[in-house]
Simulated scan of single mutants.
Amino acid sequence: MLALAIALLLVNSWVRWATADYRFADVASIPTQQVAIVFGAGIRNNQPSAALRERLDGAIRLYQAGKVQHLLMSGDNSQVNYDEVSVIREYALAHGVPASAITRDYAGFSTYETCYRAKAIFGLEQAILVTQDYHLPRAIYTCRELGLAAIGLSIPDWSYQPEQATTYYPPMTQVRYTTREWLARCKALFEVHISQPQPTFLGPSVGLGETTSAQQ
């Protein structure tokens, strides 16, 4: 148990340290890129969850500030009645992002698959990742190890700039998310360095502005 605890600590410290130079706390300081990737975070009654809404707001700020020209919306459409990325798209449209600046990836079932498909399907070489601070180190690490030179906009949560967070995370939720993320970082290292699985769906390459379905 002690060895396992030490291993978890080392892995998580490594992922955060290795990505420290690629994480930015505000829109003004982040370098300009062509594309921002928004990771899905669940929908409720065809509306973005609070966490997803925060990510979308961050991506919209990047677009409005001229930091990116395009948004790649990645999420889950594995079931007919669950279309995460279309909900994401409608939210962005309602906040002034034109349809021509939005691409949907319906088969972004995980952080690993989103990063893999961003490069293999959509041909990205660089991107800004938009997600909460607790998730951002893993997302950047995964993308960069898969050949996508990613930097990230950190959305404040309980672990970084908590006073700026717009969503309240109860203490037990913080513990659950933190524990899950620590384990997920270990899995991420295994995936990118050892198992290197292909995504659930891997179809032909398409350009930005084109849409892929979960069946491709």
Rank of each mutant, 00 (worst) to 15 (best):
I30W: 02
T32L: 11
Q33V: 06
Q34G: 09
V35E: 00
V35F: 05
A36F: 00
A36I: 02
G40A: 09
G40E: 02
A41R: 00
A41G: 13
G42Q: 10
G42L: 09
N45Q: 14
Q47R: 14
Q47V: 10
S49P: 05
A50L: 12
A50V: 07
A51L: 14
L52E: 02
L52V: 08
R55M: 10
R55I: 08
L56I: 08
D57Q: 14
A59R: 00
A59F: 03
A59G: 10
L62M: 11
Y63C: 01
Q64S: 09
G66N: 11
K67H: 11
K67I: 07
K67G: 05
V68I: 15
V68T: 04
V68Q: 02
Q69T: 12
L72Y: 02
L72C: 08
M73C: 12
D76F: 09
S78A: 14
V80Q: 14
V80E: 14
A92P: 02
H95R: 15
G96N: 12
P98I: 07
P98M: 10
A99R: 13
A99Q: 15
S100M: 09
S100T: 13
A101M: 01
A101L: 04
T103S: 15
D105W: 03
Y106A: 15
F109V: 10
F109R: 08
S110W: 01
T111I: 07
T111S: 11
C115M: 15
C115N: 06
C115L: 07
C115G: 04
R117H: 10
A120Y: 06
I121L: 12
F122C: 06
E125V: 09
Q126S: 13
L129R: 01
Q132G: 07
D133M: 07
D133G: 12
Y134F: 15
L136M: 13
P137L: 06
R138I: 05
R138Q: 09
R138G: 02
A139E: 03
Y141W: 14
Y141D: 01
T142I: 08
L146T: 08
G147L: 09
G147F: 08
L148D: 02
A149M: 09
L153V: 08
D157L: 04
D157Y: 04
W158L: 11
S159D: 12
Q161N: 13
E163Y: 06
A165G: 11
T166K: 15
Y168S: 12
P171G: 09
M172I: 11
Q174A: 08
